[in-house]
Design a protein around this nucleic acid. Structure first.
Lengths: 136, 136
DNA sequence: TACTAAGGAATAATTATTATCCTTTAGTAA
DNA sequence: TTACTAAAGGATAATAATTATTCCTTAGTA
């Protein structure tokens, strides 16, 4: 993926820090501010937490990334992808993407409301294969 | 609704403050800590914000209420109801419940993953009838 | 009625996020 | 290239949200 181009397409200045943050986000899939900061520090030891927040907000504003908020968890961030749902494992607390038919859901909802629907956020909770075996 | 019984069923001590908080939550449908505090203050002028947080956490812990978290909004709380989705109006920022077929969604997701699914959280964003007319 | 564990009030402490100030740098155009 | 300007970065202060602590009060129970 060409991160430099991706930033330009979203009208964001290209800086080494920003490229690093974006690249880490892509690699991680879903990552918290805390973890992202720990990782970006390894590349830019003097980077400030405020810089990270400023970048996250800039990228959110341009919809380059999305915020995922679920109960009892710190917010996580992911690079924007086609509509999909999230599976959240209650054991290891990891997210996994799943491409269910989001449009069908939106269609069904449309029929039951007068809302003009624009976007959706779907989180399913359960146990992943690994955590299923271990405990429960 | 018998709030006293509801609290007892969830192994929570019955106190006047707690009854007040629960009753306000039911009436509001979906409410933030801030709004809840403003309202409960009218009934118990000396109530502390810490007390409110402790009650919210106690009720969350016993699944008497649920937390709703979505990007760019303060968390809201609702008394636990049968599985349903939320419609969030981007104009007035109000939630509305909608009873779409959540089980069908979970079934579909089950087929596409090895997860053992337990719970789901679905938020659809758009404009309600009123806000559709006004702007957009 | 009395006892005990939990709840409430007040407030301090912690955590997460944003604002501010000043320095540095990316983007642009001469 | 060079020079200019707006935006970005770093350091840190400030704010907001939530949790912890202390002590006093009350609900549940024997």
């Amino acid at each position: 993926m060409n991160y430099e181009l991706l930033l330009r397409e979203h009208h964001l200045k290209v800086t080494p820090q920003r490229l690093g943050i974006l690249s880490l986000m892509v690699d991680a899939g879903h990552i918290s501010v805390e973890d992202l900061f720990a990782q970006i520090k390894q590349e830019f030891s003097s980077i400030s937490l405020a810089t990270l927040y400023k970048n996250i907000n800039a990228m959110l504003h341009n919809a380059l990334i999305k915020e995922i908020k679920v109960p009892h968890m710190k917010p996580k961030y992911e690079v924007t992808k086609p509509p999909h749902a999230h599976l959240l494992c209650q054991g290891c607390n990891e997210f996994m993407d799943i491409d269910i038919n989001v449009n069908a859901l939106v269609d069904e909802a449309s029929k039951k409301s007068h809302y003009q629907l624009l976007d959706s956020s779907i989180v399913l909770c359960g146990y992943c294969e690994k955590c299923q075996k271990q405990s429960v």
